[in-house]
Every structure is written in structure tokens, then in C-alpha cells.
Design a protein around this nucleic acid. Structure first.
Length: 496
RNA sequence: GGCGCAUUCGUCUAGUGGCCCAGGACAUGGCCCUCUCACGGCUAAAACAGGGGUUCAAGUCCCCUAUGCGCUACCA
């Protein structure tokens, strides 16, 4: 299963009812990984057979997210291929053709029952605590009855005739041997009265026609697999290998849904996550390589990931761990790439805030960011967090009330310290280097016999409007003499 | 209700009958490093759902119970 096999064909088949969320992203990724490992083909197919829930614009949303994650497909809506079209709504003729063949072979039949009545019957049975199964009323219709009904324009669906008392067997890569008796399966509808196919039918037809060899999808489809195998068997199609992935649950143990906050990939991009971190974390849900390793680059995953070692237990989504992994990737990213990402982040931020009042040239943004990176690389877990650490280098700070009154009840004589700092910084000779800045500032601490952390605290508030800042001397260096002194002056004015 | 699947620290997991009075990672607490915050290092607390078997020996095999999840649609 792991050797190179160019004939491998897998697919990711989302339905366009919303953005790409973390669970589908995982499914897509594992499909992609499998192909990357075996050298086969990755197919994207859009399952848009539910008109009511269909949202056309989400198709684009989903492909954009997939692309951002780097999960490119070989065949699909935008890539074409010899097994298209790759949208189910464009394949209704195919589904109908095959359904008629089933009817001819007495493996399916027309059903004229009204959906409303059937629904009512089912609900009543369930209320009584009984099992409901379609009673095959329409199977007894004579060819003449059927002909009349069709000619009079009566709406009909097509139902699959489920063979009685047959055992269906299949082996799932993750869940092992699954055995189900057809007694628990009713004659399910394959073509709805609106002419569109239902999921269990179209998915089997398409997977067969598109020559899919390995079906990798969420565990919610495990129980439906026997129905699909019935379809394969009815046409003598080859049955693919099945791999069902354990569900991803929200932190409350419930199935992931919109209520759990930011679950779309789009949202994670916005929040400043990087693609390798998301992929790494996703691979770790339900899978591990050994006792110790948690960080896997995408190329390592291609080598090491095995579908067969995925476990069966549903996993709760742990946002904190994703955050940590993201921070890890940022800390270990090469600086030139980080520079690009951060510059983009800051530009977007400045644009969104419509900020024009800059105290430092935004033209040399990237050069400045290059200098800032070593100071903040270890301090951010997402790209977005960098905004608070970078923007004060460029944007005029306005002191918060907290900053203005920060030293009111403290014993330190802030104005005095700042006056000395002003002088000390002004006296830094030559280039304004962190080393010299440090030397001069530490001197103040010695002279006043005051711990340096106290001095630093005062300076931080004055130049950064916060008691927390990147390393002080380097920050002052990058800020530059002029700006630093200006801020100190302004702050002295405020507290004097 | 029926069918299917699952159950090790708060979370993700290691563990395939003796190496486990259960290992790692995130999160949490403490200490160290230190100009703040981080990073890094050290350290602490923290789990085999419950009950029966099988076996010299069970987290690991079997059965039952409990709990959770999925499917049971003219949703996918």
C-alpha cells in the first residue's frame, strides 16, 4: 500500500455549502499526502447535488483555501482531466443513464410515493419506537401502472432494490473489518423526483467512473459505505479501498461546527497562522509517528505518514497546541520569508486603519522589519500578533491613561530618571548602537544605585507606551536617536 | 428504536500479554536564565470509564454495563 503506484487515484469531494473548515482540510490533506507518497493523482470533485444548500461562491472559497494550504489537484474543475466533468451538477445525464440501466436489470424501480406521506409514516413509526423501512409499495406496480403514472406527469423517484439478507463485507484501513447485513438497509432513493441523484448513489458512480482507487474521507461516511458497495456490485464496478478518518470534535466534545469559533481555513489565515503549522497539527490529530516527535515538515510527513497507523478515536481540536506549533514554525522560519509575511501583515494593517501619520518612513518598511525580526521572532505565536510589536516602530504612540499615571504611586522619580536617560542617549557617540546605548543607560543605574529593571521600566513606558516591549537597547537603536528622544520628551511633559 | 464505531493525564497521544507503581507533547504550577515579555533549561501535579472473566502475568485478549459519536432523509 505504500510503494509507489502511479495508478493510485484519490479524490476530495466537498459539497459547496460553506467555506473549507478544519475537518475537511484534514481530509483533503491526507488525500493529498497519500498521492504525494505514492505518486498517483489527486482529484477535486464538487458534490453539488443539493440545490437547497448549494452556495455557488463557496466553490471558489474552498479552492482558494486548498491552494493556500498547497494542496493542488491534478484533475478538477479548474484543472480538467479525462474523467470530467468534475461537478456533479454537470453529470446528471450520466446518473440517469446508469439508473435506467438498473431499472432494466430489475435492480432499481420507480417510486411514486409522495415524500410528505413517507415522512409522516416514518415519524410515526419512530414515535412508537419501531423500526421504519420503506414497504416497497411501488415495487408491486405493473409496467402499465408505471407507464400511466409517467405519462400523466406524476413525479417519481428511483429507488435501489436492496438485495435481501445479504452480508456486506469490507475492510477499512482504519476501522478494520466491517460487516453489515442488508436487512438493516431500506430501498434507498438514488434519483430524486427533481432528477438529481442522492449522495450514496452519485458518489459511487463517480468514484467508479473516475477510477478512484482509494477513498479517504471522514468517519461520518463509514455507515454509508455498505450502500455504496451495493451500487458498485450492481454494476460490477471495482470496489476501491476505504479509509475512514476519525472525526474532529470541538473542545466541548461536540462535532465541529460554526459555534466553535474560527474553524474556517480562511479565518486561520486571517489570524496569522502559517500553512506548515496547520498541516502539521492536522496530521497529528489521530496519528503519531513515535513517542516523541511532534514537529513534522510537510516533506517529512510525505515520508512518514501512514494511513494504517491512524487511530480510531475521535479527536478534540486543541487550539492551544496549534498556537504552539504555529509559534514554533515562526521561530524557526528563515528571516527572508518571515520578512515578506510580516511586511504584508503590516501593510494590510496600516491600510485597514487608514494610517498615514507615520513617525518613520514606511518606504523602508522591509529594511526596518528585517532589523526588527530578531527582536520579535521568539515573541509571537501568530503573524497577527506581530502588529503590536512592530507598529510602534512606525506609528506615533498615544499614551494610554494607564501609562500617564503609571508612576503616580511608585517610589521611582520618573521625570528625573528620564532626564538622565535623555542626556545619556544624547551623548551616545558615533553610530547609535545598542551596545553603546546599553553602556550609557546602565551607568545611570549605577549612579542612582537603582536596579536597572526599574530604569528600564520607566524607559519602556516612555518610548513604548507599555511596560512590555521588545529588548530595550535594540528597540531604541531601531527607533533611532531622534524619535526616542522625542518620545521621552513628550512623556516627561505628560508626567511633570 | 435499529445498525455501526469508539473509550489511557484537562487535550493530542505512546503502549499490540511481562521492559508500565504507564512514556512524550500542549496547557497548568514552581525554579533557573533575564532590562520587561517571550524563548530556552530544569522540575511538579495529572490518566488505563466501571464490573466480570481468560492467564503464572492484562492498559494490552473475551464478555457485560455505562458513556460518547456516526448513520438510519427525495443532506452530503
Amino acid at each position: 500500500m505504500n510503494e509507489k503506484n502511479k495508478d493510485v487515484r484519490v479524490r476530495f469531494a466537498p459539497s459547496p455549502t460553506g467555506y473549507l473548515h478544519i475537518g475537511s482540510a484534514r481530509t483533503a490533506f491526507l488525500n493529498w499526502l497519500y498521492v504525494a507518497k505514492t505518486g498517483g493523482k489527486f482529484i477535486l470533485r464538487i458534490e453539488d447535488t443539493d440545490i437547497a444548500r448549494h452556495q455557488e461562491e463557496t466553490i471558489n472559497l474552498i479552492s482558494e483555501s486548498l491552494k493556500w494550504l498547497g494542496l493542488n489537484w491534478d484533475e478538477g474543475p479548474e484543472a480538467s482531466g479525462e474523467y470530467g466533468p468534475y461537478r456533479q451538477s454537470l453529470r446528471t445525464g450520466i446518473y440517469r443513464k446508469y439508473a435506467l440501466r438498473l431499472i432494466q436489470e430489475k435492480k432499481a424501480y420507480y417510486c411514486f410515493c409522495s415524500p410528505e406521506k413517507l415522512k409522516e409514516k416514518r415519524e410515526n413509526k419512530i414515535k412508537e419506537g419501531k423500526i421504519y423501512k420503506y414497504n416497497r409499495k411501488c415495487l408491486e406496480l405493473t409496467p402499465e401502472n408505471i407507464q400511466d403514472n409517467i405519462e400523466s406527469g406524476k413525479p417519481y423517484a428511483i429507488r435501489f432494490l436492496v438485495p435481501e439478507n445479504k452480508t456486506i463485507n469490507f475492510k477499512d484501513t482504519v476501522y478494520g473489518d466491517i460487516t453489515v447485513n442488508t436487512a438493516s438497509i431500506e430501498d434507498f432513493i438514488i434519483i430524486r423526483s427533481n432528477g438529481l441523484p442522492t449522495y450514496n448513489y452519485s458518489v459511487a458512480i463517480d468514484d467508479a467512473l473516475m477510477k478512484i482507487t482509494h477513498v479517504i474521507r471522514g468517519e461520518d461516511h463509514l455507515s454509508n459505505t455498505p450502500k455504496q458497495i451495493l451500487i458498485y456490485n450492481a454494476f460490477n464496478f471495482n470496489v476501491p479501498d476505504f479509509t475512514h478518518l476519525p472525526m474532529i470534535l470541538g473542545q466541548d466534545g461536540q462535532k465541529l461546527s460554526k459555534r466553535h469559533g474560527s474553524i474556517s481555513i480562511e479565518k486561520y489565515i486571517e489570524e496569522g497562522f502559517v500553512r506548515e503549522a496547520i498541516l502539521n497539527y492536522l496530521a497529528l490529530l489521530g496519528w503519531s509517528y513515535d513517542e516523541k516527535t511532534t514537529i513534522f515538515s510537510t516533506s517529512e510527513l510525505i515520508k512518514k505518514f501512514e494511513l494504517s497507523s491512524i487511530n480510531k478515536k475521535p479527536a478534540k481540536f486543541d487550539f492551544n497546541k496549534l498556537l504552539w506549533i504555529n509559534g514554533y514554525y515562526i521561530r524557526n522560519m528563515d528571516n527572508s520569508r518571515l520578512k515578506q509575511l510580516l511586511a504584508k501583515q503590516i501593510r494590510n494593517y496600516l491600510a485597514s486603519k487608514n494610517i498615514i501619520d507615520l513617525e518613520n518612513g514606511v518606504k523602508q518598511l522591509e529594511q526596518k522589519i528585517e532589523k526588527i525580526i530578531p527582536l520579535i521572532k521568539e515573541r509571537i505565536k501568530t503573524l497577527k500578533e506581530s502588529i503590536n510589536l512592530i507598529s510602534p516602530f512606525f506609528i506615533k504612540i498615544s499614551y494610554s491613561d494607564e501609562s500617564k499615571t503609571y508612576f503616580k504611586n511608585k517610589k521611582v522619580n520618573a521625570p528625573d530618571i528620564l532626564n538622565r536617560v535623555y542626556k545619556a542617549l544624547n551623548e551616545v557617540s558615533g553610530k547609535f548602537h545598542a551596545k553603546d546605548i546599553e553602556k550609557n543607560l546602565r551607568l545611570i543605574s549605577e549612579r542612582l544605585n537603582l536596579s536597572f529593571r526599574k530604569i528600564a521600566e520607566v524607559i519602556r513606558i516612555a518610548i513604548w507606551n507599555s511596560a512590555i516591549s521588545p529588548p530595550l537597547f535594540e528597540t531604541i537603536e531601531i527607533l533611532g536617536k531622534e524619535l526616542t528622544l522625542k518620545r521621552i520628551n513628550e512623556y516627561i511633559g505628560i508626567i511633570s
